[in-house]
Structure formats: C-alpha cells, structure tokens
Design a protein around this nucleic acid. Structure first.
Lengths: 142, 142
DNA sequence: TTTACACATTAGAGCAACTCTAATGTCAAG
DNA sequence: CTTGACATTAGAGTTGCTCTAATGTGTAAA
C-alpha cells in the first residue's frame, strides 16, 4: 500500500512554542521570531494572549526557509519565494527556477569549501610535522 | 633531487595592485583593502605615491586569511592567528590548535551543507515531477 | 493568594563583515 | 594637458542576526 500525497498532508494544530521550534531547528529563539516577523513563515498562529504557536505545517515552512538560508539565499529572496508559493500553481515555473539555481550555487559553495578544506589539511600536516620533529618554524606563515 | 624548504621561499618583490589581488583571489577590491586595513596581511608595501603593492609572499598571507574566513573564523580571530605567526616558533602549539579546531568546524559545516543539499535535491525532484506531469500543486510549499 | 520563576512579547540598539559612496590623488596614453 | 582607468581615505549603508530593556503571561510552590 503506497502512501498518497493526500495522506502526507501535515498537521496544522498549534503545538510548538518559539523555544520548541528553536530547539528542533537548531537556531536561536531570536532567529525564529525574526523569520516570522520578516514574513518567511506564513500562517503562524497566536494564542489569545498573543503567544506564537507553530504547527507541523509551520515547521515544514520553517525547514525550507532554513534550507534556503543555509545555502545563502537572502531573506528578501526567500520572502519572494514564499510569496510565490502562496500564489499557487501558476508560479510553479518561477519557483522551480529559483530552486534549480540555488542548487547550483550550493554545489559551487560545496566545491569551494572542499578546496579550502584541502588547504587547511595541508596546514594541519605542516603543524603536525613541526610539532613532531621539533624543527624550527622556518618560513612561518605558510 | 628533492626540493628543500629554503628553495620554496616566496618572492617578496612587489608586483600586484589591489585590483590584481582581487582578481587572483576572487574577492572584491574593497575586501582586499578591508583585510589590509584590519591588519590581516602584514608587510604590504606601498609605492612612493602610497599605492599598495603585493608580493607573492603577501599573496600567500592573503591565501591563508581567505581560507580561514571561508571556514568562518572571525576577522578578530584571524588577526590573533596572524599575530601569533609573527611571534615566531614559540607560538607553534597555539597556532596548531587554532588550525586543528578550524578543520573540525569546516568538517561540520560541510556535513551540514551536504544535508541541506539533500533537501534541495528533493525539492528539485518535486518541481521536476510537477513540471513534467503538469499535475496540480497539491500541497504547495513542501 | 501572593510571589517566584521561566517563559513570552515588542521596539529598538549593537555588531560583524562587508559594500558602497564621495571626495580626492595618480599616472599612462592619445 | 586632458581623459580615463585606476588608486587613496573616511565614513555611511546594508544584511542578518544578536542582544537588551521594558513589559506581559502562566504555572507552581510557599
């Protein structure tokens, strides 16, 4: 029995406080409020006394926002993406383009970081040798 | 015939302008000046008319600064590292610790980015399917 | 019931690391 | 000798948090 999309629809009952979300997503509570204030997580509900309560559905918005930020899309561009989502299926192509582009950027960033890693590892080896051999620091920075 | 360390010592004759360095290192000219002003690249020489000229030796400093920044060490901490370098071989252990720690941080960052990549690729697939099947945007954000 | 405590809210200040602007200087080529 | 592409500086602006202050909420022990 295969799950259908319909069965996967996420729960919209409010469950999580700002602090809960912060913990789940591994960001600060400040950041959670900041993203909400910036309109990146639509539909976040409030209790009678004005306290934010997030549902699993809200969390899934947060997750994609977090992903886009982690891959260095600006807050403004994320807001644009979210707004496109809210406009429904006539914006699928635009949204797809954003995601495809972002994947390429992330790929480049990963490659770049991997090459920085090589430099760091070379340096690590340099220091390990230095510490082992008790040799002098012949040409210090490099 | 093995190369000795001595043979690898870098040229200290001034050759590159700010713009050259920016191009070589793939950063903005502003950033090059910023790093210099912040004391991250010691010994950068100036012409009689006060124009910065970088040698290959200066470039090698820039490269390590760039690497440490790319792995998210703060400007302040980079300055501290550079100052340790300038104090000679009595600071080798301290410098080594910084590099070892930084390698671990980079490793974590890489892992994190790779997991974000997975999320992005899932989204990419979602949009590809959507565009292929001309199906509806059933539960739009996810 | 009061008081303590850990939480929540907001507006707004502070910060790091660029990023850009304005005013000005340098210098080789036409 | 002027034009154009570079350089210099101080300092303002931007982004994305990050923190503070003043204040409100809600449970729980004294």
């Amino acid at each position: 029995m295969k799950k259908t999309k319909k069965e996967e629809v996420l729960d919209k009952t409010p469950k999580y406080t700002v602090k809960d979300v912060a913990k789940i997503m591994n960001v600060s509570a400040h950041t959670v409020r900041y993203y909400d204030n910036e309109g990146l997580i639509p539909f976040v509900s409030r209790t009678e006394s004005n306290i934010r309560m997030f549902s699993d559905y809200d969390l899934s918005w947060f997750r994609i926002v977090h992903c886009l930020r982690a891959t260095d899309l600006s807050i403004n561009d994320i807001r644009k993406y979210i707004e496109l989502c809210l406009k429904g299926n006539k914006t699928i192509l635009q949204r797809a383009k954003i995601i495809f582009a972002q994947e390429k950027i992330l790929e480049e960033n990963l490659k770049n970081l991997q090459s920085q890693m090589k430099i760091l590892q070379k340096k690590k080896k340099y220091y390990k040798d230095l510490l082992k051999n008790k040799s002098n620091d012949i040409w210090n920075p490099l």
